[in-house]
Design a protein around this nucleic acid. Structure first.
Length: 207
DNA sequence: CCTCTGATCTTCT
DNA sequence: GAAGATCAGAGGG
């Protein structure tokens, strides 16, 4: 049985595009009440720090909400969106370089019963985690997880299930979702998904 | 398939 | 007081 290693700090201390691509196909894990919920990451977005108009940290904006963006690579940044949804990011790069990767969709593989209980409106198992707000609920993630060190936490982390990133031909890069306000940054190909995989976020029109 | 809209609430201006 | 890195449901084609 293969050992799925957790990523070390060095993996996260890199640029967000690199990390966002390499996270595809790896496994997100949250242990809730001693029970694993897990799934393969299908869709990510890179947020590029103080220059990126779509990023919370644009223009070095550092507030009570966004301060976690300035933490070290490997830290979870969880925020409440639209008053309803908890979105999970992984901070990358170094302290005070506010860059992050948003996890947008996961194919659930473990803890399906618990996910169904926390996502009562999901009509199918594919819908459990096919969007950033959905997977936050399915995984039982909320703002108490903001600031969690994914390289050390016993309950929230990413497991490496393949040694390398997927080959380029299996990765689609396209514009990010819901950032039309970001001007020229809205069109940049900073959203990454596994080609032809059905479980990605519905809201996005997938190329 | 598509577009529109209400829900819900923290944060910052 | 307004604005969200969203979702689900309703209605129309």
């Amino acid at each position: 049985m293969p050992t799925a290693a957790r990523y070390p700090r060095a993996f996260y201390r890199r640029d967000p595009v690199h990390v966002a691509r390499e996270l595809l196909g790896q496994r997100l894990v949250h242990v809730v009440h001693g029970h694993r919920r897990a799934g393969l990451i299908l869709e990510t977005e890179a947020y590029l720090g103080y220059e990126d108009k779509a990023a919370h940290s644009y223009n070095w904006k550092k507030t009570e909400r966004t301060k976690t963006m300035f933490a070290d690579g490997g830290t979870a940044y969880v925020f409440l969106n639209y008053g309803i949804h908890h979105l999970l990011n992984i901070v990358v790069a170094r302290v005070d370089q506010p860059q992050a990767v948003l996890i947008r969709a996961v194919e659930p593989t473990e803890g399906l019963d618990a996910m169904r209980a926390d996502r009562p409106k999901a009509k199918t198992d594919r819908d459990l985690c096919s969007g950033p707000g959905k997977l936050g609920a399915a995984f039982g993630i909320d703002r108490t997880h903001d600031g969690t060190d994914l390289t050390a936490s016993p309950t929230l982390f990413v497991e490496r299930v393949r040694a390398r990133s997927l080959p380029d031909r299996q990765i689609v890069a396209c514009p990010r979702i819901g950032v039309d306000y970001a001007g020229d940054w809205a069109a940049k190909p900073l959203r990454f998904l596994i080609r032809d995989h059905p479980g990605v976020s519905v809201r996005a029109r997938n190329p």
